[in-house]
């Protein structure tokens, strides 16, 4: 069951760091036939929330982290979520990434109504459709890079050869093939985040969630990571990224502003994609 040919779309794009870049036409991502809904339309909706609310209850205090929250993200979009601290960005991302449950409202992910799913089904959906990139990288310190990237693939149930192929590809994709046996503590922050991206990509997710992926990085590294995300997006993966950095947000196709648990402002149509061709930056993050 793991030998199916839905290979990563970004394969081979940038296998040799620093080498001259060649852009080849991208094959479209194939849907995983094991998912409840395998049908995807080119202009389909990846994520749709309507009148969603999330209430945290602690010690008699209720925090309305999200209220009447409505949003839809189309397949293939790159959405940046901005907003002041405490406004509910992470909460949105957690719910969107099926890490948390919501209190009321409706939520479809890639055509699946999420509210009826149990923990196991959510885990499976998360594993197969969603990739995560965290602000704190969240690499497992006891595992080397290879094993770190291996983690989601293990839960996916791929065989050893498939896993190895994917791990090598995705580490190559972020330019860290040579460091496969290193441990996270032996890498710089930017490198660690790239491992986290490789891990998120290894399972060919349709949706990539990033919560302040550059929050712990300096601006140079941040731009490198951003480049990488843009490239992944170009290859067809939908990306939702929370960021505080207006400059990075500006580079996304669409901006969603969250305030007090509500979407206050979002671009209805995607902006023109901006592309950095600064080779020096590419070098810097390698």
């Amino acid at each position: 069951m793991t030998d199916e040919p839905n290979v990563c779309a970004i394969r081979g794009l940038r296998s040799i760091p620093g080498a001259a870049r060649r852009i080849t036409p991208m094959p479209t991502i194939l849907a995983d036939p094991r998912l409840p809904i395998s049908f995807t339309e080119p202009e389909g909706v990846m994520l749709k929330m309507q009148h969603l609310s999330k209430v945290y209850r602690t010690h008699m205090v209720e925090t309305h982290a999200l209220r009447d929250f409505s949003i839809h993200v189309r397949d293939g979009e790159f959405v940046a979520v901005t907003g002041p601290s405490g406004s509910g960005k992470t909460t949105f991302l957690n719910i969107a990434g099926l890490l948390e449950e919501f209190t009321s409202g409706e939520f479809w992910l890639d055509g699946v109504a999420v509210s009826g799913l149990n923990d196991n089904a959510r885990s499976k959906l998360r594993n197969e459709k969603i990739g995560f990139i965290f602000q704190g990288f969240n690499l497992i310190p006891d595992l080397n890079l290879f094993d770190n990237v291996d983690v989601p693939l293990r839960y996916r149930g791929y065989n050893a050869a498939e896993r190895r192929k994917r791990i090598e590809e995705s580490l190559a994709r972020v330019g860290l093939s040579s460091r496969m046996k290193h441990y996270p503590s032996e890498l710089s922050g930017g490198q660690q985040q790239r491992v986290a991206i490789a891990r998120a990509l290894a399972g060919s997710p349709r949706l990539l969630m990033a919560d302040e992926p550059t929050g712990n990085l300096d601006s140079l590294m941040a731009r490198g990571v951003m480049e990488l995300l843009e490239e992944i997006n170009r290859a067809g993966t939908t990306i939702i990224m929370v960021t505080h950095d207006p400059e990075l947000a500006a580079r996304a196709q669409r901006n969603v502003h969250v305030m007090d648990g509500q979407v206050t402002d979002f671009d209805a149509e995607p902006k023109l994609r901006m592309q950095s061709r600064d080779a020096d930056i590419e070098e810097a993050v390698v």
Partner: peptide
């Protein structure tokens, strides 16, 4: 993290 990455 493992849970977020899909572990049941």
């Amino acid at each position: 993290t493992r849970r977020a990455l899909g572990a049941t």
